[in-house]
Design a binder for these strands. Structure first.
Lengths: 295, 295
DNA sequence: TCAAAAGTGTTCGTTTTACACCCATGT
DNA sequence: ACATGGGTGTAAAACGAACACTTTTGA
């Protein structure tokens, strides 16, 4: 029984993950959607979880089978947060805790007038360890690339990256000094085709933009995203790669080191040294997150 | 006919205004809600528009007659923005244009389970000139004080204001360096009584926090709020007062002057000098907003 | 003449950014 | 030996905050 008197409300969850192309749990290429050839290395990558829109009752079902951000209607006895946790649990098998953050609300203008749905978007960051088991499956859960080391390098070659405060496949934002700052640029604005439909692209873009704030030095990034995508101990250079793909912006290595370890440090030496030893160069010291800080 | 299957959606609009207690259109005291005696001067004041919750169909009707932020259910054929504009037009007689900004979404948990309403809050800033005619009236539209020059001075005397990044009657926020930063403090947390109910206080607090960003030097404040509360030409000291009450924080006069007129200036000399002449001291040059900048 | 507000010069410390250089390891 | 990445020293530039001081008016 449709209720035509008022619009209905849905919650979507934009789930990010990040991993290196040497990661032991690296998903199969059929589960990854990349802007480059599948054999190519991408370095560190930031990804967003999508699924095929194949649920019979789904309001945003698309005949062409576009991939979508997981979503569900809000039930009468649920808070928005509860709905988001249910999506994480039922569609992705993730038992959420405190990691959900509210982003923005979208009018789904493309739906017909008698079945209108308005969408509240949440975002979350999960480590690949939690995500690996649910990739594929009935809903064809997969990952769409948001940014990667090689994507940034290519963008840097083509345009002058300095004028952007951040760039991703789902859009870019200018710096605050730039005359066009505060104006969004989505794939369709840059001239490209939408990746997940206009609505989905909007959702990912704004969720990404919200997430970026946690990686600007103002916050403690691991507490901000509620996840440790690099594990307990990690090289600073890997953390730098993570910062770069999340921010969509390259950082100087020495500058990053001082930001992470100086006053307002959010990492501390783990006391050990990287022993994987496959790479040339001086062995990197390992670092771990400082837990107790709350900024 | 209530539709019990899904929660319904409402839009609220938090309307701010600011004026000086010497303003020619200064509202009558019965329309103002102040934390101090009515005869006292408050200097520059930041206010939020409220109305008595006396509509028969209102979902948040309160027997005790609490004042509320204007709101309305979203109709089937309306976008959220359209609903917000309708509230501005029908309840406040304001013909809106591009000045609405989306803030946050609230689960109205206190409503009963079979009539649940979820609330999207917008905020807007209007000049007193546009607001004056609608004060009072059937809905007893009035203004609740958010902050004022005298409120800031009193707070500065009592606590050390330096440790806060901003304080208002609806809550405070700490600086980013402070250990408790990112934690909100609402009236009920500080030990006071809610001013507009817990939900209303939340709405105003977050809308205020969003508006503050436009006054931190990162943005061009007049374009950000889409209004010129001080008119075409104004003294820098009046603009400083406006900044102080919006930010909930005192600013040094010379520092403010350089911020407003230096590199990244957002005001320029209007070429004339203040001729009202009632105050002692050197006559102030008048400034006007730089229109063309888009940051 | 004095109080009050406007407006400018200057200093000091912090943060940001860049660049140079040394260190330790695999090949 | 040398390429490669790890890590530190240093300095210029930009910025924010504070303080002193001059200017111009009303009372």
């Amino acid at each position: 029984m449709p209720t035509a008197l008022y619009p209905r409300l849905s919650v979507s969850v934009t789930v990010f993950t990040a991993f290196d192309d040497h990661h032991p749990l690296m998903p199969s290429h059929s589960q990854l959607s990349m802007p480059v050839s599948e054999s190519e290395r991408f370095g560190m990558g930031l990804w967003v979880v999508t699924r095929k829109d194949n649920e019979p009752g789904s309001y945003q079902q698309d005949p062409e089978g576009l991939r979508v951000v997981p979503s569900s209607l809000v039930r009468m006895d649920e808070s928005l947060r509860t709905t988001a946790l249910r999506i994480l649990r039922d569609e992705l098998g993730i038992v959420g805790d405190g990691r959900l953050r509210q982003s923005r609300i979208f009018d789904a203008v493309e739906t017909t007038a008698d079945n209108r749905v308005i969408s509240v978007n949440f975002w979350a960051f999960v480590a690949l360890e939690e995500l690996g088991p649910v990739l594929g499956g009935r809903d064809q859960v997969g990952l769409e690339m948001v940014s990667s080391t090689s994507f940034l390098a290519a963008t840097d070659r083509d345009n002058a990256l300095e004028e952007y405060a951040g760039i991703s496949r789902f859009g870019l934002r200018y710096g605050n000094r730039h005359p066009q700052a505060q104006q969004k640029q989505l794939p369709r604005d840059i001239g490209g085709a939408p990746l997940l439909g206009d609505l989905g692209d909007d959702m990912v873009f704004y969720a990404w933009r919200d997430m970026r704030y946690g990686f600007t030095g103002q916050y403690e990034p691991f507490a901000f995203i509620g996840s440790q995508p690099l594990g307990e101990a990690f090289r600073l250079s890997d953390l730098k790669d993570l910062f770069e793909v999340v921010r969509g912006q390259t950082i100087q290595a020495d500058q990053f080191r001082r930001m992470a370890t100086g006053t307002r440090a959010f990492v501390e030496p783990a006391g050990s040294v990287d022993s994987s030893g496959s790479r040339p160069g001086k062995p990197a010291g390992l670092f771990k997150a400082i837990k107790s800080v709350r900024r």
